[in-house]
């Protein structure tokens, strides 16, 4: 029934169809945004083609690295095979996480021209973007799983479920993915300020990070200042912790001769607790930074009229 104006109380006044609030609404908004993301991301082509693309890309990357390793080492570097496969597999998440939220901003604003309608809905922009980014994240997960499976089945990666450290794996995945999402939020905040051609920024940065977080080679081969940069990135600790959980005998990407970590601590291989604590600390740091960056960016975008700008031709 239409409320009468006589009963007016502006705080009680809500659009009759929009009366809920709180976590249920937030969850509903997130879930729907994730569904929207999946429909938009996965619907553009034949699902088989889509799956092939999302799997083939990370797999090809891992294969190239493994072949290079085999050639350079003359087939005598078995311990590095697991090192590279794990790093490459996790990188599917990183690319998806970093670019997913940013691409959602660009797509919704410039291509579908719906960002302003999403923005003025009661669901917060951050929740909407996290939901939209979830689809890409899921695709990253598929790529990671396939890369690991191919590594174990066809590349001779020595995987033994009996020695796998499940608690460490679960904890490090939870923290690591949170860190990736936080970095994704930072990039969403950045592209909120930029033109549509900035779609390549997240992938470019992901490519740079690939080299300095120990994904494909130990930090020790890098100059000390770059190692320092790597050590304050949660991705470094995440990759190392997952390696430790899956392949306890794998080479450490953080410590060892020539590494900054060993020089500072005197330790040649950080134990699981050190890995987790450092991962937690850097993730919290990056998450707080991401929240602040996003808030500032949203405010600036509102101030400059960027929420509904279209910069395409």
């Amino acid at each position: 029934m239409e409320p009468t104006v006589a009963a007016f109380d502006r705080h009680a006044l809500r659009a009759t169809r929009s009366r809920r609030d709180g976590w249920r609404d937030t969850w509903r908004g997130y879930r729907t945004a994730a569904r929207l993301g999946w429909r938009v991301e996965a619907n553009w082509a034949d699902p088989i083609l889509f799956l092939t693309y999302s799997v083939a890309k990370p797999l090809a990357g891992a294969l190239i690295l493994v072949v290079m390793l085999e050639v350079v080492s003359g087939g005598g570097a078995d311990e590095y095979r697991a090192f590279i496969v794990v790093g490459s597999a996790l990188w599917s998440f990183v690319i998806a996480g970093l670019s997913g939220l940013a691409m959602s901003v660009l797509d919704d604003r410039e291509r579908y021209r719906m960002l302003k309608y999403l923005y003025i809905s009661p669901t917060s922009l951050a929740v909407l973007l996290l939901g939209r980014g979830t689809a890409r994240f899921a695709m990253g997960g598929i790529g990671a799983a396939v890369t690991l499976a191919v590594g174990v089945l066809f590349l001779g990666v020595p995987f033994d479920p009996a020695v796998m450290d499940v608690p460490l794996l679960l904890a490090s995945m939870a923290l690591g993915l949170s860190g990736v999402i936080a970095l994704g939020v930072v990039f969403a905040a950045v592209v909120l300020q930029t033109r549509q051609d900035s779609w390549s920024y997240p992938e470019a940065v992901a490519g740079a990070l690939f080299l300095l977080v120990g994904a494909v080679f130990p930090l020790a081969v890098l100059p000390m200042p770059v190692q320092a940069l790597g050590l304050v990135t949660p991705l470094t600790w995440w990759v190392a912790a997952v390696r430790e959980a899956l392949f306890p005998d794998a080479v450490s990407s953080i410590a060892g001769p020539g590494s900054l970590y060993t020089r500072l601590t005197g330790v040649t291989e950080p134990d699981r607790w050190v890995l987790l604590i450092c991962l937690l600390a850097t993730t919290v740091l990056v998450t707080l930074g991401a929240m602040l960056t996003f808030r500032v960016s949203e405010r600036r975008a509102k101030d400059r009229g960027l929420i509904d700008q279209t910069t395409g031709t």
Partner: peptide, 21 residues
């Protein structure tokens, strides 16, 4: 404006969810 790949009914329903229905 609009998500061209979605059906009309589906797109509207998604917005209904963003409005808390």
């Amino acid at each position: 404006s609009g998500y061209g790949l979605l059906q009309v009914r589906e797109q509207l329903w998604m917005f209904s969810q963003f409005y808390g229905l």
